[in-house]
Amino acid sequence: MTTPAEELAEGLTRVAAQHFGGATITDLKRLSGGASQETWSFKTHKDGEAEALILRRAPGGGDGNASGTAVGLETEAKLIQLAAEAGVVVPTVRHVASPSDGLGSGFIMNHVHGETLGSKIVRSEDFASVRPKLARQCGEALAKLHAVPVTSLPPLRLSPAIEEIARYREVYKTHGHPHPVFDLAFKWLSDNVPADDQSTLVHGDFRNGNIMFDPKRGVSAILDWELAHVGDPMEDMGWICVNSWRFGGIDKPVGGFGDRKDMFAGYEASGGPKVDPDRVKFWEVLGTLKWGVMCTTMYEAFKTGMDRSVERAAIGRRSSETEIDLLYLLAAD
């Protein structure tokens, strides 16, 4: 009987032989596994030279029917390729799996060196010299990302602000436990919805933790495209400012490492339209509230018996973190 890892190694060896010129596979290692995807690292060897690659695939090598808000893996690969053409730093996609590869739904990309651990970007001495440049670089990357022509995109969900608010309000109300600060935020959001809907590519999870940083060069790859959609580009700028992703660096709103004005300057210098800070704040409030509601959703998974882990139970008590963040955003004076 072969283990899933052995089966995967066999599949990858076949793919390497067909697409990477007779290579062999070593160092196969599982990096992470979410509900929607698995990430593996491995090396191919050809003519005595090793190359580091990454596989993203559906859990257990399934067909990866996209669930909920996540895009499918073929879509994710296509988006990364489109972003690369638009000049966004992303890992190069090397191969999109076909059914004959036996890997399930997924794709193979180059391994990019760097650090994604948010707390290290915020605090490690290794990033001290590059840290002041990172917010501007994030703005530059977002300007290019938002400029990807909408007509070139694969089918993506549309998520205008008003629908996002309604979706999360319904989840919150269904749980039934009162969070008056959430109601305050829902009311504020409903009263402050941007007058016009904009429709560009939105990364959807652009935050410290999903960006690869190099200690010398700074931003080296934008990762984790599975929540991409078409919507308001300011959503991405608001999300990276949510305090939950500042890793304790509360006085540096951009990811805990930088200032908004530097991100906005980088955005405008790279061809992005003039940034309206109020619009970014709207999305920061909505992002903070979304994370708060998600914490209560994870508690629901515990309550219903779907996941009885201590971790799942305890995360419900983290919704209060977003409540204090919302009060700082809406009621600080």
Partner: peptide, 16 residues
């Protein structure tokens, strides 16, 4: 009320 929650749930949280 929120500060009381934080003092119980996560007194180490940056905003608290």
């Amino acid at each position: 009320s929120t500060l009381t929650k934080l003092s119980i749930d996560q007194p180490k949280y940056s905003a608290y």
